[in-house]
Amino acid sequence: MTRIVVLGPQRRPTLDTVVASLGSSIDSGGPIATVTAGWQEREPDDVELDGLLGGRSANLRLHARWLDALDRDPEYAAAELAHRSELDDLQELYLLQLDGALQALAEIARHGGPARTRAIAHSDAETVVRLVDERHLARVQELSADFAETWRPGERAAVAEHRDAVRHVLGKVSALVVAGGHVGVLLHVLRLFDVAAQVPGTVVAWSAGAMALTDRVLLFHDKAPHGPAHPEFADTGLRLLPGCVLLPHARRRLRTDDPHRLAVLASRAAPAPCVVLDDGVRIDVLTGGGLPEGTKVIGSDGRITA
């Protein structure tokens, strides 16, 4: 059973004390695998991270490996590009559907008339939104499965070579640390190099790194240049931490003063809780995957609870 610790954003790092607190579950003095692929081209800039880990980090360099695999296998690179484009199209069309469904939900909430009929209609509209979300994630999985079946990335020489190298490193470590960054890139390279199949006994992850461990990745940003955009499900994650939707930087990125908006978000994720991952948060996931008491989540009334 893998021990998972989820952290809030590491603007003021707590990683060093967290790792120290894990005691005997991490081989003292042994290497700790790190993933900084979410930082993309800044992947190698991990001096500070290495320092927090006492100089024990072994960066899996997944982003660099991905670029190398693409360079060495142009046929696969072109196929991956086409697949990405198809997924982007799907995401765009999902957003169109979602926009309509969420507008209807908002309109019904504002509608006058008898409360009983409004509640019935509201419940049905919520079901439609959830259906749009569910179908989208299913379609993403279908397309990705088709792609994997057709192209079998793990059997292509360049990817296979890097998978071996990653497996070799992971075989020697007792812990894996996954940093934040671009959640799409992070998820892609974690899958491409099959990291989930060989995770060590302890995983510590924050922000995008933590999102990638879940079973549903939700993108959100209410403070974009054009104002709040609809939160959107993007992909399934590695499923190491199923049954919750993680919201890093929630107070910075969400309009937490709009309980109606947050209630809709909580309803879309239900029964999985929307977990607020703000600075300083530490969640030691329980054996069996549950969340410890006191984990901050968005309640059904749209307020952040403890």
Partner: peptide, 18 residues
Amino acid sequence: LRDTLSWIYPGPQKLIYE
């Protein structure tokens, strides 16, 4: 230009969680 370009081709803010 900012309003225009960020609406036409929005950046990846929604995907980045540092």
